[in-house]
Design a protein around this nucleic acid. Structure first.
Lengths: 253, 253
DNA sequence: GGCGGCAATTGACCCGGATCAAGGCACGCC
DNA sequence: GGCGTGCCTTGATCCGGGTCAATTGCCGCC
């Protein structure tokens, strides 16, 4: 297995979300799957999709996939691993914008400004499908399914962006965050009740606009109430229904 | 002037942002202008844009342009007036998602769910250009400029959606809000230092995730510091530079 | 004119979560 | 081993903004 990686870049121990060893299975769970496969993998137009996609990686934890200000040329679908996007203001304070799991796509917010407005940082060892955006646009003009797919992905991200905007308590935010992750894992075929948190408490807190201490306290409280079992970054949801009650105002407003 | 409106629907007194009397000038400031005009108004493909657009209105203050759950068929460019979009949770609490000024477009976040995920409510008398989305998609397939325009508008809205996500003080939020409005008015050719706030203090507060009382207090403080002049909903920015300092972490993170 | 309703303002009080600080735990490195 | 370094947890304190409440001003309407 390891021989497929460049020397000196040993991969992390295989994680439950990594799936780069099984390409077709990955593609089945990817956000582009309907464009790549379902809509007719064999049509000549869609063969073009195979040409404009490029497999990149591995990136190790902490490495940048792109940086603020980089010229926008491509969007990236996560094949395995986890990514955070963030902005850093001039005082150096970090602002986490989102986490991206296998099958999800980063870079869409760079289309308008034509430069990436944020950093993308790997949280563990990650691989990507890189889609040249000019080529993708051109393909979208010829294949309505691809165009529609892009519209839908963009519109979908608009919906999720407004999620953490509300003024909600720390409990609501954390509960909703855990359930959101669970749902996204489930949508890609992974366990919805047991998974690994690739991000630190600090990243979670930053994303949820809380202090790291508050996240820690809420998780401790949830554990005491037997809502979750958590040890380090290994999480199990013991009472998803109750968590849903707590976070529901935030999940579907 | 009034004779052009249906009986019983007297318009509000002409507002500085209304411009429906001068169609070509409006189009020059609209978010679709490059698609409608600049990219070649006379090409046969673009004549189609004129066919799929429909002028609708007037809507009076408080009337809905669309409601949560309505099937998505079209997007709307504001021709004159102001709109707020909002979600209402099951407890009946309102969540303001955004305000839209003349030249801006509402409804993009409905593409993915195929139903409007929010309400759009007129804040004063408003007129729209209604663009059938299926027709627009079809046109986008044939005219790359239209497709690119849609991608850019969607991506742009992604950027603004993440603006109010940060944890910022009430002063920062209000200052950034006022400057954001000023910039958007300026982008459409209106005064950047004097304008009318079409929305109530409660709407502003809700949008900024503050209490109405807090917004009121901040505005009073800004007035005492000679940063603004405000009387009711008539606003003048007296010291935009200082406001920019206050709100800068939020404006460009 | 007087009344009622709504938006806005202002003051008094309180609470949730930030901040500060201390300690524990697991890891890699010399 | 001993030590440093992150990351996480837990406790003590503080403050910004929410909440409650009273007042004012503005309109529309009877």
């Amino acid at each position: 297995m390891q021989s497929k990686y460049p020397a000196g870049r040993l991969p992390d121990p295989p994680s439950p979300i990594a799936d780069d060893g099984d390409e077709t299975h990955f593609c089945g769970t990817c956000a582009f799957s309907s464009a790549c496969i379902a809509a007719g993998y064999h049509k000549p137009e869609l063969a073009a999709l195979q040409c404009l996609v490029e497999h990149v990686g591995p990136f190790r934890a902490g490495e940048h996939i792109f940086r603020t200000g980089d010229p926008f040329r491509a969007i990236f679908a996560v094949r395995s691993g986890t990514v955070k996007t963030r902005m850093v203001d001039k005082e150096g304070r970090e602002q986490v914008l989102g986490f991206y799991l296998p099958g999800e796509v980063i870079g869409l917010n760079a289309i308008y400004p034509e430069h990436f407005p944020c950093d993308a940082v790997a949280l563990d060892t990650t691989f990507f499908c890189r889609f040249s955006f000019p080529a993708m646009s051109a393909l979208a003009s010829r294949v309505p399914a691809v165009q529609q797919h892009l519209f839908r992905m963009l519109s979908k991200e608009l919906g999720t962006a407004s999620l953490l905007a509300g003024d909600h308590s720390a409990d609501e935010r954390v509960a909703a965050f855990l359930l959101d992750l669970a749902g996204r894992y489930a949508a890609r075929g992974f366990s919805a009740t047991r998974f690994h948190l690739s991000m630190s408490r600090g990243d979670i807190a930053n994303y949820l606009r809380l202090a790291a201490e508050t996240v820690s306290r809420v998780l401790s409280r949830f554990r005491a109430q037997k809502l979750i079992s958590i040890e380090g970054r290994e999480l199990e949801l013991l009472n998803p229904a109750r968590l849903r009650e707590i976070g529901q105002t935030l999940l579907r407003e």
